[in-house]
Computed example of a mutant assay.
Amino acid sequence: MNVCFISNVIYPFVTGGAEKRIHEIGTRLAANGHDVTVYGRHFWDGPKEITHEGMTLRAVSPNRELYTDDDGRRSIGEALEFAKDVVVPLRRHVDEHDVVVASVFPYFPVLSSKLGVLGTDTPLVTTWHEVWGDYWDGYLGHLAPFGKGVEHATARIPQHPIAVSELTAGRLGDIGPEREQIRTVPNGIDYEQIRDTPPAEDGFDVLFAGRLIEDKRVDILLRAFDQVAPEEATLGIVGDGPERSELESLADSLSVAERITFTGFLEEYDDVLAQMQTGSIFATPSTREGFGITAVEAMAAGCTVIGADHPDSAVGEVVGDAGFLADPTVEGVANVLDRVLAGAEPTTEPRQRAQRFDWDQVAEDALDAYTAAATDEW
């Protein structure tokens, strides 16, 4: 099969969940004899088209900053530019591809991908990581109707939709395709890589890893840890983002300030895994998670995961009974954290749960979906 992915960012030159999914699925398909091409921005050195780990990487747009400088939000101009740039190259090569897979978010490249396949026999598969809905109100303010309109328009174009969780599938079904037409293929992990990663020399008892933005609710975790952490217990905050300075100021004001460490962004993925191997508790009180990959990674490392019991988070769906959910308040997280610190264990062993999300299985499920789209058996 000849599979083409559309993604403005390409792993490992840019690291993030959506681009890593493409990399992990794509490299496995390529290793099994399939032809894989990724259309993206020119984030690497050298020619615009290269072969990387068996895949063809085709730059159709120049390197550009993804986030705006003033508020750390994704640049709308960047998404529009890439959407414009990808149409002609995709159209030129579309007959070579059995299926075109476009990642959502952002939305504009999905719309341009549809233009690229229009009038051909090549189907468009979309991978939905989240459906924002009313989240647009807080993200764009008075411009929220624009964001919602683009999201709805993207959901309603003819496509073969894949959602990474049942939560996202349900929300997508509310605004676009019929629910029974949406397939669910989760994000994944390299289970053996995580299992074989040695622990860090300097680790923490409780760990958070992720982008430091408001929705992650790291402030709740800091205050909860301050309330219940036993003497000598440590908390590590791995990641960076626009909320870091404010969170560091909050941590400095707490009685356990000397036991809280902000590591910043760790460039090597293995360094994050090493921290998970060292910790015993992974706490992620995020109130907006389309999937929750860090929770799966932490389970594979043997951590007990504490997630948020919130309608906008799929972590509960992912963790199941291999972890715990807490009300995303200081009191709610403190109560569950106190129980786990005291030795409470989940019903299912975390590593056992994590194995079902291994990338080998995810790639197999994704290929089944791509094949169904290409053979009109969706």
Rank of each mutant, 00 (worst) to 15 (best):
L266C: 05
E267G: 11
E267A: 15
G279V: 00
G279N: 08
V296C: 06
L325A: 06
A298K: 06
T347H: 13
I306Y: 08
I293R: 03
G307N: 07
G302F: 12
A344M: 13
P311A: 09
D309C: 02
G343E: 00
E297V: 00
F282V: 00
V318S: 03
T348L: 06
D312Q: 15
A322S: 14
G279F: 00
R339T: 09
E297G: 04
I306P: 02
S280G: 12
P346V: 04
A334K: 11
A344H: 11
V315F: 03
S286M: 08
P285T: 03
D309I: 02
S313M: 09
D312N: 15
V315C: 00
C303V: 03
V318N: 03
F291K: 00
A322V: 05
Q277R: 14
A342R: 15
V319L: 04
G343T: 06
T284C: 15
G279I: 01
V330R: 11
V272L: 13
G323M: 04
A344Q: 14
E268Y: 08
V318W: 07
N335H: 15
D271G: 01
D321T: 12
D312Y: 07
E345H: 05
H310C: 01
C303Y: 11
D270F: 07
D312F: 02
F282Y: 13
P346W: 07
V305E: 10
S313F: 02
Q275W: 05
F282G: 00
V319E: 09
G316C: 08
T329V: 09
E267S: 14
A300N: 07
F324C: 09
G320Y: 10
A314K: 04
D327G: 02
E345L: 13
D338Y: 08
A334Y: 12
A322Y: 12
L273Q: 14
D271L: 05
T329S: 14
A342M: 03
V296R: 01
A298D: 07
D309R: 14
N335R: 12
T304F: 07
A344T: 13
G320M: 04
T284N: 15
Q277L: 01
G320Q: 11
I293S: 07
D312G: 12
